[in-house]
Each structure stands twice: as structure tokens, then as C-alpha cells.
């Protein structure tokens, strides 16, 4: 009996049909295990077992369609990196804008300072780093140039006085000097 079973099985193997064996082989399996090893199974075990296994199968999850077909473990870091880059870009732009007004204000102050006669007030608005440059500009623009201009005007007064009649010389000099001093 045993020899016959093994011969049958060998024949099946030789036929190349190893993948799907028919019910006859299943009966052989059960018979062999009972006959040689004394192992048995409950009646209708395999049909009941099939139902149990099918009912215990997990429900198939529907695969989620992701943007560009990327899997979450790739898509999330990419999205995070993109957001960080955008954040850095925006922050840098805002930072640049924040610096520009300072520079503009400083330039405005400096230009105002040059035009302004109120040296002390203007100097309060100048930053410490720019103070030396501010002083140099002030000395050149305000003191030396003004002094030069004043000297030039005095010379003009003197030259013009040569052409003024003697009777009018006193009033001319007074008016020119006063005008020169005031303006």
C-alpha cells in the first residue's frame, strides 16, 4: 500500500504537474498521514477551515492616490523641505527690506544734516560709526565752503565799492555787510 502510494506520487512528480495536484493526491495526503503517523483531522475540517480563514482575512485597503504618485515617506520630507526653502526665501526678502529703510533714512538724515544748520540736532541722528564721516563732511561743506564764500563776498563788496559814489559808500557798505552776515 505504502509502496503503491509512493509510486503514484513519483509518477505525478515525473509528469511535471507539481503545482496543482488534484483531489486524489489530497486524499493520499490524509491517508498517508493517518496511516504512517497516526495523525487525523476532524470531519469537514478543511471546508470549515477555509471559511474561518476567509472570514479572518484583513479588509483590503484601497491604495491612496498621492500627488505625483509619490509615497508618503518621500512626499512629506519633500513638502517640508519645499516649505522651509520658501520660508527662508520670504524671510530673507523681508530682512532685506528691513535693512533698506534704515539705509534710506540714514541717507535722508545725512542729506538733511548737510542742508540743516542745526548741527547738534542732526548729529544726534547720526550713528556712531558714521560720526567721523559726518563731521568731516560738515567741516568741509559748512565751515570751509562757507568761509570761502564769505571771503569771496567780502572781496566782491570791496571791488564793487570802488564803483560806488563817495556819497553812497557808507550805506552800501553797511547794507552789503549786513546782507553778507545775515545770509
Amino acid at each position: 500500500m505504502a509502496k503503491t502510494n509512493k509510486n503514484n506520487k513519483n509518477h505525478m512528480e515525473q509528469s511535471g504537474n507539481r503545482f496543482l495536484k488534484d483531489d486524489i493526491h489530497k486524499k493520499e495526503l490524509a491517508q498517508e498521514h493517518k496511516e504512517y503517523l497516526g495523525m487525523d483531522v476532524p470531519d469537514n475540517y478543511f471546508s470549515d477551515s477555509k471559511d474561518r480563514i476567509l472570514s479572518s482575512l484583513p479588509s483590503e485597503n484601497v491604495q491612496k492616490h498621492t500627488v505625483f504618485g509619490l509615497k508618503p515617506y518621500i512626499a512629506y520630507p519633500l513638502a517640508a523641505s519645499f516649505l522651509i526653502l520658501v520660508g527662508i526665501f520670504v524671510w530673507l526678502r523681508n530682512d532685506t527690506k528691513a535693512i533698506d529703510p534704515t539705509i534710506t533714512n540714514t541717507e535722508t538724515i545725512q542729506s538733511l544734516a548737510v542742508d540743516s544748520d542745526d548741527f547738534l540736532v542732526t548729529s544726534l541722528l547720526v550713528e556712531d560709526d558714521n560720526l567721523d564721516a559726518f563731521l568731516d563732511d560738515f567741516i568741509v561743506n559748512e565751515i570751509l565752503v562757507e568761509a570761502e564764500l564769505s571771503e569771496q563776498q567780502l572781496e566782491n563788496i570791496f571791488i564793487n565799492s570802488l564803483f560806488v559814489e563817495d556819497s553812497l559808500i557808507n550805506s552800501y557798505i553797511d547794507a552789503s555787510l549786513i546782507e553778507n552776515i545775515i545770509f
Binding site: 496543482l20 489530497k26 490524509a30 495523525m39 477555509k50
Partner: peptide, 26 residues
């Protein structure tokens, strides 16, 4: 194939349940 999976799995059980059972049982 998600659409055919459950039906195919029943076939798979029919074909292999018993063979795998005895393999495991030993």
C-alpha cells in the same frame, strides 16, 4: 489584482490548504 484577489485566494485555499496543513502539522 485587487479586484480578483479574494476569488483567487479561495482557489489558492482549495489548492494548498491541505498540503500546507500537513506540512505544518508534522
Amino acid at each position: 489584482n485587487p479586484k480578483l484577489k479574494n476569488e483567487a485566494f479561495k482557489d489558492l485555499l482549495d489548492l494548498y490548504q491541505e498540503r500546507l496543513y500537513w506540512h505544518i502539522r508534522k
